[in-house]
């Protein structure tokens, strides 16, 4: 398996060592990571709320999609970079950490759910764009997304209580 080898390589880089030994680098990167995640989850939730017909009901689905999801993607990129830097500082331990693995698995499901929605129900959005009540497939995608993001945050927080 190449993942453990990658982990031991990355945690032995100068960058990883610097993050590990510095008193301020890890919390600073962590703050950026949390800030990015709040924008990811909050903006994704705005779109999910529209799909569920809970908020932004006076706007079309594609309008909220256009307004909000660029924020999600930009913040997600920041979260991944900051997250990877934290991971690199102690890669092997994170790789072996249960909640970390669950978080990554849940993120995979988030991506899968979003991809299915984008290439499925959203293709036909023009038929229900201004409907307050979207098709069941779209509402399902929104509901699943919300629940999965709650678990991503929960597992993420849990890492801090289990990583030795």
């Amino acid at each position: 398996m190449i993942i453990p080898q990658f982990c031991s390589w990355v945690e032995n880089t100068k960058m990883a060592a610097a993050i590990r030994t510095s008193t301020w680098m890890f919390p600073t990167i962590e703050s950026i990571h949390v800030l990015a995640i709040t924008i990811v989850v909050g903006s994704a939730a705005m779109f999910d709320f529209r799909l569920l017909g809970i908020a932004s009901r006076d706007r079309t689905v594609s309008q909220v999609h256009r307004e909000v999801l660029p924020w999600t993607w930009a913040a997600f990129a920041c979260a991944v970079v900051a997250g990877f830097l934290m991971f690199s500082s102690d890669a092997m331990k994170y790789y072996q950490n249960g909640p970390f693995r669950w978080k990554m698995f849940t993120l995979l499901l988030v991506g899968l759910n979003a991809a299915i929605f984008e290439f499925g129900p959203f293709r036909g959005v023009s038929r229900w764009d201004s409907e307050k009540k979207t098709p069941i497939s779209a509402r399902l995608a929104g509901g699943i997304s919300l629940v999965l993001w709650v678990f991503v945050v929960g597992f993420g927080r849990w890492i801090g209580f289990t990583k030795i």
């Binding site: 924008i39 990811v40 705005m46 927080r157």
Partner: peptide, 15 residues
Amino acid sequence: TVHILCVAIIMSTMA
């Protein structure tokens, strides 16, 4: 976790 989810709503809407 609930606290952070609330922060997510506030940070996004305020941003």
